[in-house]
Amino acid sequence: MFAVEERSSGQYIGRVGPWSPPGWPGLEVGWGIARECRGKGYAVEAARASIDWAFATFEIEEIVHCIAPDNAPSRAVARKLEARHDREGDLFGKPVDIWVTSRKSWAGQN
């Protein structure tokens, strides 16, 4: 994942980007922004750049976003990215909603 820094201060505020650890349902672009910096568009901006980079770098047809069912802010980010809720899953004993951004739909919006 990539480090996210606040432009005005240079302060580290989180991480956003691709990763695919063993057992994951696909290449994910995920996000984690410091609580005090949420709601300012950092996750959406960085995720868009990360999705662009991932599709340009890897020969994949889709990117997943694994989101805890009760994580409303991350679901909102996924919606802003125009990802679609694809299915429910289980990651290491914890339920997740798996959202998908397809190469085809991404190419149509960017």
Rank of each mutant, 00 (worst) to 15 (best):
G23T: 03
E62L: 06
I98H: 08
R38P: 03
D70A: 13
G39R: 01
S102R: 13
E5H: 15
D70H: 11
S8Y: 00
Y12M: 15
I51G: 04
I51W: 00
S9D: 06
P95F: 10
A76G: 10
A56K: 14
V4D: 11
E6G: 02
G32R: 15
T101L: 15
A34P: 05
H85S: 06
N110S: 09
F55W: 06
P69S: 15
G39P: 08
A47M: 01
R38C: 08
A43K: 05
S9G: 05
C37S: 11
R103G: 09
G23P: 01
G108N: 15
R84L: 05
A46D: 02
H65F: 09
R7Q: 12
G39C: 08
G23S: 02
R48D: 00
D70V: 02
H85N: 01
W106G: 05
I98P: 09
V44K: 03
A54K: 01
A46C: 13
R48A: 09
E45N: 11
F58C: 06
A46R: 02
S105D: 15
P21T: 12
E82A: 13
A34D: 15
S20Q: 12
I51R: 01
C66L: 11
E6I: 05
A54Y: 03
A107M: 12
E82W: 03
V16A: 04
W24E: 08
V100T: 13
G108M: 11
E82K: 14
P69G: 14
D97F: 08
F55L: 09
A3L: 15
D52L: 04
G41Y: 14
F55K: 06
Q109L: 06
P18D: 11
A49Y: 02
R35T: 12
E88F: 13
F55Y: 12
P25W: 10
P21F: 12
